[in-house]
Amino acid sequence: MAILTNPQLVEAPSPGRLRYGVFTAARVTDDLDDRTVASGFQFPAEDCGVARLYDANCDTHPDKVFDEGLGYVAGDPYWVYATHKCGSVGRTPQEVERTVRRKLAGAEQEQVEAAIWGGTSPPVDPALTTTAGVVSVTPDGPGAGAAIAALEQSFYDAYGYVGTIHINTRAYAALAYAELISDSPSAGVLTTPLGSQWSIGAGYGVTGPAGAAPAVGSVWAFMTPPVWIRRMQRPIVPDVVQTMDRVHNQYLALAERVYAHTWACPIVHAVQVPVAAPAVVDITPPAA
């Protein structure tokens, strides 16, 4: 039992590593400069498109089909911020600044996941639920296994490289029960048996294309080409002494970071995934 009522203040312990989420599955680069913050970015979608079989016979000489143009994909910037309000007595400016930086570091991934999913205010582009031309997939049977298999089949019919599956964490147990998450993740990235990358995010929603609600007991999952997240090299933290509320003697600390994201091609497929995972396996032998 403590004798004194003023416990000694010590340094906060390390929180450990960030949870698994889109920061693990995506390519994250700290190279968002001032010009990109002002205008966003785009690049040519050179790895998208289809190839065709050709019947090289001497009778009909069929024409080859040529695809016109080159598409572009883009990412628009958005801001993620954290704040901290604290009385100035007993806290140094350095302690207050460190606190708001740590708060942002632990919470920004969830906000980026929410922006990627869509439906945020202000809206972010691109977003999964608002992307035009999303292909909605109908599974061939019940269960999470059939849903994800149908999603991968549909997606890989349109894209030749490894894709990323985005899904809310509440579906995790069903995915694990169906053995859809590899026991041997590559470089810390969870994958399906086919090698598709999982982005299992607490910040994701459960709605589908155009904000469609899922069936009872299910969530929507989306599959995209690889995700590229760009952000400023370091958060912006104004001098807490300068932002102080001197009337009420309160520190008003702010930490913010600008993000932008996109995927390699404008290809998005979606499917509903049931979240139920049986707790007990029925091992009753069939009747003779």
Rank of each mutant, 00 (worst) to 15 (best):
A56Y: 07
A56L: 06
A56F: 02
N57T: 15
N57C: 14
N57Y: 01
N57V: 13
N57G: 15
C58I: 13
C58Y: 04
D59G: 07
D59K: 10
D59M: 08
D59L: 10
D59T: 13
D59P: 05
T60I: 02
T60E: 07
T60K: 02
T60Y: 08
T60V: 14
P62C: 06
P62K: 03
P62V: 12
D63V: 11
K64H: 02
K64T: 11
V65I: 15
V65G: 08
V65P: 00
V65F: 01
V65Q: 09
F66N: 14
F66Y: 06
D67W: 00
D67H: 01
D67T: 05
D67S: 04
E68C: 04
E68D: 06
E68V: 11
E68P: 08
G69K: 00
G69T: 06
L70N: 03
L70P: 05
G71R: 00
G71L: 00
G71T: 10
G71Y: 00
Y72C: 02
Y72K: 11
Y72R: 09
Y72Q: 11
Y72S: 08
Y72I: 06
V73D: 06
V73E: 10
V73G: 13
A74T: 14
A74R: 07
A74Y: 11
G75T: 04
G75A: 09
G75W: 00
G75V: 06
D76A: 12
D76G: 10
P77C: 03
P77D: 08
P77R: 05
P77W: 00
Y78W: 14
Y78P: 09
Y78M: 13
W79L: 15
W79Y: 04
V80A: 01
V80E: 01
V80N: 00
Y81P: 09
Y81D: 12
Y81W: 15
A82Y: 03
T83K: 03
T83G: 06
T83F: 00
H84M: 13
H84A: 13
H84T: 05
K85W: 05
K85C: 08
K85L: 14
K85D: 08
K85F: 08
C86K: 06
C86A: 15
C86F: 04
C86Q: 12
C86E: 14
G87K: 07
G87I: 02
S88W: 07
V89A: 05
V89P: 02
V89M: 07
G90F: 01
G90T: 07
G90M: 03
G90C: 02
G90P: 01
R91D: 12
R91H: 13
R91Q: 08
R91N: 14
T92G: 11
T92N: 05
T92I: 07
T92S: 12
P93A: 06
P93G: 15
P93M: 05
Q94R: 06
Q94W: 00
Q94P: 02
E95V: 11
E95H: 08
E95C: 14
V96N: 10
V96K: 05
V96C: 14
E97L: 13
R98Q: 13
R98T: 15
R98V: 14
R98A: 15
T99C: 15
V100L: 04
R101L: 15
R101F: 12
R102W: 02
R102D: 14
K103A: 15
K103H: 13
L104N: 05
L104C: 04
L104E: 04
L104P: 00
